[in-house]
Design a protein around this nucleic acid. Structure first.
Lengths: 221, 221
DNA sequence: TAGTATACTGAACATGTGTTCAGTGAAGCG
DNA sequence: CGCTTCACTGAACACATGTTCAGTATACTA
């Protein structure tokens, strides 16, 4: 009689959390019901509340778990291979599909956990980029921190809108062609920019002469 | 007895639609209840359903209305001043706060209406960018269409994540300082890129030799 | 005037869903 | 064994919310 119940060795609480991460990510916090999560985990709805107190408590547990997993993956990556290009920071986030879906959903719904992960990724990217500047792979910026924020926001933004990008490309979502064309476009902009000269930047700098860059950046000429 | 009821000259159906646009944008489709919308519009909940059939029907009406308004603003802009820089395409979307909030919410929730607006903005940006290339303000791209998609996705992405950006900047959301620093960072990347040379682009092009650029781009050497 | 359509309302209905609670069975412990 | 603890369940509760419906008032038409 142990063929059905013993389908995996995770504890019931862990199965509930895993099912919740998947359903929250796929359906969103509201549409994913406690009953659905319980069914996917193979337990009764009451047990979900027994272990996590409430649906929000379950989300908090999922947040903590996912953020923890990403942090673990990040430190592992740093300790093993050391790639300095800013895309490596994103690579570690892709690959684990369900956690990625959960993260994107959290970002969409604006939970604090996603914000913390955003901040952590900014910090991580900044360190990578500082190293890239030292090795000469990246051109120095007048405000590397702000640039890191911008790049992380853009990367996440592209991920959030990947459905729209795929449609506008006329390709299947996550198809090989889509990824290639996307990366190619990114590389071109990252390498050459889009303006033919610095007239826009100059015009802006004339309008808004380099005012005191507040906290978060410490350049001084 | 006409002091309370006659607070504006919009028809009840219009007031309902306006209240719905605002609440859907601020709270999201799920959290904005029919009763709340009715209260904001100063009518009974039943009237909402009487005019729009269902809550989904109301959303459809809001979608159509907002998309229509943006399209109108866009054609107006094109017909009056003719600015070719790609940021002008975004400027028309900002400014009208409630519609902007509604659009961002739709983008987050992935409604088809937001997709249509995304596509429209890509097309519009592409035309602007083609003109920019002709006038020499933009450097020619090997695939201007894909670049337009990327830039629109990034712009929207930055908008979607403006809360995270503000926090990472250490500024108030929508503060003057935040906008200045954001624009400055954007201009720097758009003008110079982030890489110091083309080694990454070259490496990629060696790995993935310029395969037949499929539909949507028609460059040939 | 009578009739009909339309805008509109209050109240009720149906359902989905988070949550509670009494109870069961098994495991550990004295 | 008796007791407690804990994971776990089935059923019910409470409530929010979309929706329906009978009914009212007003405006327009024949």
């Amino acid at each position: 009689m142990c063929s059905v119940k013993r389908r995996d060795d995770r504890t019931a609480a862990a199965r509930i959390r895993d099912a919740a991460v998947e359903l929250f990510g796929r359906e969103g916090f509201h549409k994913a019901t406690v009953r659905d999560i319980a069914k996917d985990a193979g337990v009764s709805p009451a047990l979900v509340l027994h272990h996590y107190g409430s649906k929000s408590g379950l989300r908090d547990a999922c947040d903590e778990w996912v953020v923890e997993e990403f942090a673990r993956a990040r430190t592992e990556m740093v300790e093993s291979g050391t790639s300095t290009d800013p895309f490596a920071a994103m690579a570690l986030i892709q690959g684990e599909e369900v956690r990625m879906a959960y993260l994107l959903r959290s970002l969409r719904e604006g939970t604090p956990a996603a914000g913390r992960l955003f901040d952590g990724l900014v910090e991580h990217s900044l360190r990578m980029m500082e190293q890239g500047v030292r090795t000469g792979e990246l051109r120095p910026s007048r405000n590397l921190h702000d640039q890191a924020v911008l790049l992380v926001a853009w990367q996440f933004g592209g991920l959030l809108l990947q459905g729209d990008v795929a449609r506008a490309f006329g390709t299947e979502l996550n198809s090989r062609e889509m990824k290639e064309r996307y990366i190619r476009a990114v590389l071109e902009v990252m390498t050459h920019g889009v303006f033919s000269d610095s007239r826009y930047e100059d015009a802006w700098n004339e309008l808004e002469p380099t005012e005191s860059v507040s906290e978060g950046a410490m350049e001084h000429d």
